[in-house]
Design a protein around this nucleic acid. Structure first.
Lengths: 204, 204
DNA sequence: CACAAAAACAGAATTGACTCAATTTTAGAA
DNA sequence: TTCTAAAATTGAGTCAATTCTGTTTTTGTG
């Protein structure tokens, strides 16, 4: 039953992820060889491929942990949003962006994003698309809250607006991780400037 | 002077691109082995790497041709835009999207996009970012035209709006190429729906 | 406890992108 | 025309992800 085998399995999963996270951090994604991850996790190469389809999926598991934390952090803002549309959006987006580099370097983000478009049907590719949808949905939920409170016009198409805001932010974030010298404050300012157009359009 | 050497060089470039394009089409990006491209182009493997930094750059050269065509096609719309904001945007975006799958399969797009985020400093990575900027700029130019004509309010931040529209479209296009079963009409309809919010906000 | 089937593991072998040192070709000076 | 330096080509070799096949471990049954 839920005996030795299951426990060993969970343990090996954990060891692989921890080893990979450490090596990715130290040596970068490309620099972290599967052989080294296997040695560090004290399993064989074959076992790693028994647990993950490919190297990208290992990174994917780590990225998913991070994005789920971000989603969690966002819940608070949706529940009690700042009392004006611009600040509400800026606060939620701020949480996303500020959290994003806690555990993951820009290089890791670049790899993760690349893999998710390159192999959209791999486990991680699908998970990443899911996560994007969850983020979009959270922005839409914030808009819904603002409509309830009466800060956003009732006749606004919330779903389309949520997509618009998420897609723009996400694309800006992609450009941000592509340039190592890009800084968070400038990114946030640029997104605020773009959203200003929307804020003007949707406020009551 | 512009003698034999230059001619041979141009000729080899062309042969490599033609061979690669054919093999990418037939076998997909991963399926097209460098060795096969070299054989088809009648050069050695080493020569290919003398002309292109890596496999991705070969695909990059092909993608760049395509995007430049798209940019060219867009010029006409900017010069003589349809006489209402929604249609003008839809026409320009329509050109981008309809052209996009002429020479490149979705798989090739996925690879190209992945490479451009994975290796933003490679020749193609930089070229791709450039091309994105040119597209953004073209959208901004269309908005500028519409402001001249008096269809868009003068006080709109054209640069920010151009980015917003391009980023949203681009992200939608990325999701589109990630799903083989996604269809162009639905993509265009979804983008129209998102842009409707903006159109309502910026029209005079 | 003993055993057979199923699950998981191990690591050698394969594969394919990319490198590099040796060779060939071209340009242009004498 | 001959020769030399620079430029370009070549393909065998390297490196690392992934695959594959034989071995070991676990489970559940008698």
């Amino acid at each position: 039953m839920s005996g030795l085998r299951a426990r060993q399995k969970a343990d090996r999963h954990r060891r692989i992820i921890e080893a990979a996270a450490e090596l990715f951090r130290e040596a970068g994604y490309e620099g972290a060889k599967i052989e080294a991850i296997a040695a560090q996790a004290e399993v064989s190469i074959g076992t790693i491929y028994n647990y993950y389809e490919n190297k990208g999926d290992i990174l994917g598991a780590i990225v998913s942990l991070e994005v789920n934390e971000v989603l969690n952090a966002g819940r608070g803002v949706v529940a009690r949003p700042p009392a004006n549309v611009g600040d509400a959006l800026d606060t939620l987006i701020g949480i996303y962006i500020e959290h994003s580099l806690h555990y993951l370097s820009k290089e890791m983000w670049r790899q993760a994003m690349a893999i998710s478009t390159q192999l959209p049907d791999s486990p991680f590719g699908q998970a990443y698309t899911e996560l994007d949808h969850s983020l979009t949905e959270q922005i839409r939920a914030l808009i819904g809250r603002l409509q309830e409170i009466g800060l956003v016009r009732q006749d606004i198409d919330g779903a389309a607006l949520g997509e618009l805001i998420f897609n723009n932010m996400n694309m800006m974030f992609i450009e941000f991780v592509k340039r190592d010298e890009a800084r968070i404050p400038e990114l946030r300012a640029a997104i605020r400037r773009q959203n200003r157009i929307l804020v003007a359009a949707i406020g009551v």
